[in-house]
Write a protein that binds this DNA or RNA. Structure first.
Lengths: 159, 159
DNA sequence: GCTGAAAGTATCAAGTA
DNA sequence: TACTTGATACTTTCAGC
């Protein structure tokens, strides 16, 4: 099977798991009309191939002490984009970074667990290290709907 | 316990689940030094309170036929913001919508499963319905890092 | 929130297409 | 190579504390 070929059973499995990530393999098996071992081996294969991850998500607006900001970046040279995204991802608090078309080149989401003053520190200490950023803007998230957030693995100051 | 009070065990539980959402309750119990029934009751309580969700996530860049766009919106009247966010969330393909401070008022992420031409349709049919939008921009996501996406529950055209 | 027994579930090896 | 079956080992659940 080719690297990102997934069949209809995989897709349905992903869809069921996106509704309830802890649904037992037996129940998934019944719904998809295959055996439980098949579900488990497919699930493991999808995880191993980097297509699927089953994880606990939090609603950041019901969770004290978690702030979210979106940062928009323009680069001065498109060839530096990949490197900047890589550098952004190295910052523990960066939840995701994406390259986009349009007015900006990169969007990143930052999870702030150490108080709003940390944003200043992030700009002063980390953003300043990035080479090739011609402009950046930050947007603090003040309200949200149906936004489940996967906490970054190395999150600090929260637990 | 107040509505969004969560204690240290809840936080550690969320952190462990954010790494592996299918970790058995028994294993979680050992790591947190409590009993398995305690883990299960806490997990259920967190889900019921809307703080936690355990779900399957996909890497949209390893999954064919899934495109992602970010839409930025300015409103002409701040009092309309809540309503616009609500309307955005009603569109099946809108994965999340957030109110932000800064140049824009709202960011939303759209999951496109029916081909890039669907973006045109989304603008023509749906965005035009929104009252109070003074400006909007779209950004197609062309590359991403460590971005796990929870598929919207009503996603169509993919499965 | 814990303990222990009953019920249910996951996993492995073997076998089949 | 990918699936199913059935036995064994494990985990979850529920009542009682």
């Amino acid at each position: 099977m080719k690297d990102n070929d997934i069949d209809i059973i995989d897709k349905q499995l992903i869809k069921l798991l996106s509704q309830d990530g802890r649904m037992p393999a037996k129940e998934l098996a019944q719904k998809l009309d295959v055996s439980a071992p098949t579900i488990n081996s497919r699930m493991k294969a999808l995880v191993k191939r980097g297509i699927l991850k089953v994880a606990g998500l939090v609603d950041t607006f019901r969770t004290k002490n978690i702030l979210v900001a979106i940062i928009a970046i323009r680069v001065d040279d498109v060839s530096k984009m990949a490197k900047i995204i890589d550098q952004l991802m190295e910052f523990k608090q960066v939840h995701w970074a994406v390259a986009v078309t349009g007015r900006y080149d990169i969007f990143a989401e930052v999870i702030v667990t150490e108080g709003i003053e940390w944003m200043f520190k992030f700009y002063a200490d980390e953003m300043s290290k990035l080479d090739g950023v011609s402009h950046s803007e930050s947007f603090m998230v003040t309200n949200t709907r149906r936004k489940w957030t996967l906490l970054p693995p190395d999150i600090q100051g929260w637990v």
